[in-house]
Design a protein around this nucleic acid. Structure first.
Lengths: 202, 202
DNA sequence: TGTACATCAGTGAACGCGCGTTCACTGATGTAC
DNA sequence: TGTACATCAGTGAACGCGCGTTCACTGATGTAC
């Protein structure tokens, strides 16, 4: 990390501080002042780099969606080696992201950030969502037309279960005898079998 | 509503005020002072009925779990007329509760309330969870033993999808072409088909 | 029924606190000559 | 290379605010005689 002007990379240092605080205390426990203190800087210094508190959270979320989109792209890898394998990989990537980047995840999905008020964030979020949709559509295309659910519905189901597993069993105080990763893997497996995309005896 | 002593039912009036504020501004937007003001009372008056801010939220959550448990009991109705019908009814009840009692739902699942620190709340929460588990177990019992997933896993899957649908598509800013109720109904339907509990051609 | 008294729900003022934000400033860095 | 100057990242003090909580109080209600 190069030390440039006074602090060097204060902007990113503040984002990192916010991430740490959000991960530790939740998206609403974090304060601008505390982030500044964590970065060894006066609260006023924050305003050289961000319009205010909300703008800082938005940047955290934006970086999160960016990483998330890249991870999903990588997992999906254009549907290779098969639509099914690619789809399952995105499911695993979702949970891996939530586990590895808890601060980002909370800023993205639990901070109540208004995406419409931050178009640049919304744009990156859309990019990530597009990967999920593509993965779902690719898999749905394997079904005979008559019994093919709309890809948007398909995608929503899987997203809902993924998000639910994260919120309830990875973040929350709810205990399950099964690790979140296993829960999601088996849950999606059963769901795909219901769609006829997995053989019933697997 | 009887007017008893000075205010009458200030305790419940405060709970109701909190519910209104939580539903409007989220579980962390609510403040003790604002709740007092909404109930036309000085903030200090709150301390005649609650130990503090957290205790008030806990009571909101407790009442929520109470209503929730009753609703689930009613929907389940001891597995009548059939395990499948009863199970599906609990799924619908979950979403109906989230829609009809948003303030309660948020206090219960989004406030970050520490259940361990409020044993009486945890107890009622457990009671609600027990209904879900019973519904899942009853349905799982219909499967041949070899291909029967643990009821706890089964239950977790459905809970995760339900919670995910609420958070993403009922509360959140995410749009789906399908109403949350339809999303959950179809999602659970496909899942049950995957378990072999619904015929594949329904 | 009427009076004196006890209770205790709610008041009003005050507290210390940390918050987000502003502003004039200062002093380290980069640049022109 | 050295000096004078411009830039602008971060400082330090101050602000108004609403928060949760405390405390001595008051006055409406319930009760004993």
């Amino acid at each position: 990390m190069k030390k440039g002007y006074h602090h060097g990379n204060l902007r990113q240092a503040l984002v990192d501080a916010a991430l740490e605080l959000i991960a530790a205390q939740g998206p609403n426990g974090f304060t601008l002042s505390e982030a500044a203190k964590t970065a060894d800087v006066t609260p006023a210094a924050v305003y050289r780099h961000f319009a205010g508190r909300e703008d800082l959270i938005a940047e955290v979320a934006r970086q999160g969606f960016d990483i998330f989109a890249a991870l999903m792209e990588f997992a999906y890898s254009n549907g290779q080696p098969s639509p099914l394998a690619a789809f399952e990989a995105t499911g695993r990537a979702y949970l891996a992201f939530a586990r590895k980047y808890p601060g980002h995840y909370m800023a993205m999905f639990e901070s109540g950030l208004n995406l419409a008020a931050h178009p640049q964030v919304g744009e990156v979020a859309m990019r990530a969502k597009a990967v999920q949709d593509r993965a779902a559509a690719g898999l749905a295309a394997q079904l005979p037309e008559g019994r093919r659910p709309p890809a948007a519905m398909f995608s929503a189901h899987v997203w809902a279960m993924s998000h639910g597993v994260v919120e309830l069993f990875m973040r929350g105080q709810n205990r399950s005898p099964f690790p979140p990763e296993d829960l999601l893997e088996t849950g999606i497996g059963i769901y795909l079998r219901g769609l006829g995309l997995l053989s019933p005896d697997k």
